[in-house]
């Protein structure tokens, strides 16, 4: 564990807490893409298949349970909670993400570290996470105004993978046999997808103005 990875995990945890806060405090999920939340639930379920077979550390196991539990809870809330579900932007959140799921799974069948059930699903989860934010970014552009908590949620969600890139550089420099090309390339693509959001987020923060994404 290094400081970059810890910072990345904590930033990821903060993004989940900000989202839970927004939904719980405002009893509203307006501006949040259910599609992205469902993709993240798939990412965690596919990635943490080794939850019960490989014990890495208490921290690792607890964080996996937190990410799986929170993503499923958010999807449940947005679908079935009688108050929250009313504020879901159903007509704006129309990204056909099964195309993404199919493409990522196909890629995982071709490109993986080892051709085993667990490794193919692990690679699938890495590719899927790289594109999971797309429905959310599309929804933000369609809905125009971005409330503070939603903006912060997306910001922290993007920042965590940027910390992971620093973690991979650090591990590459300090660990002799460290090579994680699948994670690194996907992580770079994932962070690049946030580039324009980060740009407009920074501008709005500098001008102390509301976050506006160009339609």
């Amino acid at each position: 564990m290094n400081i970059f990875r810890l910072a990345g995990d904590m930033t990821h945890l903060i993004s989940v807490l900000v989202l839970l806060l927004k939904i719980y405090a405002t009893k509203s999920c307006s501006g949040i893409s259910l599609k992205t939340q469902e993709l993240y639930a798939m990412v965690f379920l596919a990635r943490y298949l080794d939850l019960f077979s490989d014990f890495i550390s208490l921290y690792n196991t607890v964080m996996k349970l937190v990410f799986i539990g929170s993503s499923l809870a958010i999807v449940w809330c947005m679908r079935y909670h009688r108050v929250v579900r009313r504020s879901y932007d159903r007509e704006l959140d129309t990204f056909r993400y099964w195309i993404l799921v199919g493409a990522c799974f196909t890629l995982a069948l071709v490109l993986h570290e080892k051709f085993s059930f667990q490794e193919v699903f692990w690679a699938f989860s890495i590719y899927l996470e790289a594109v999971a934010i797309l429905p959310q970014l599309v929804l933000l552009q369609r809905s125009g105004n971005v409330d503070n908590l939603t903006g912060q949620y997306v910001f922290f969600l993007g920042a965590y993978r940027a910390f992971y890139i620093l973690n991979w550089i650090y591990r590459y420099l300090t660990e002799p046999r460290f090579t994680r090309w699948i994670s690194c390339v996907s992580g770079l693509v994932q962070t690049a997808l946030y580039a324009d959001f980060f740009y407009y987020y920074f501008i709005s923060w500098k001008n102390n103005a509301k976050l506006q994404l160009p339609a």
């Binding site: 990875r5 080794d50 690792n60 964080m63 990410f67 046999r177 994670s183």
Partner: peptide, 10 residues
């Protein structure tokens, strides 16, 4: 356990 394949990152 095959060390370098067990994914120690989240």
């Amino acid at each position: 356990r095959n060390e370098d394949l067990s994914h120690d990152e989240l």
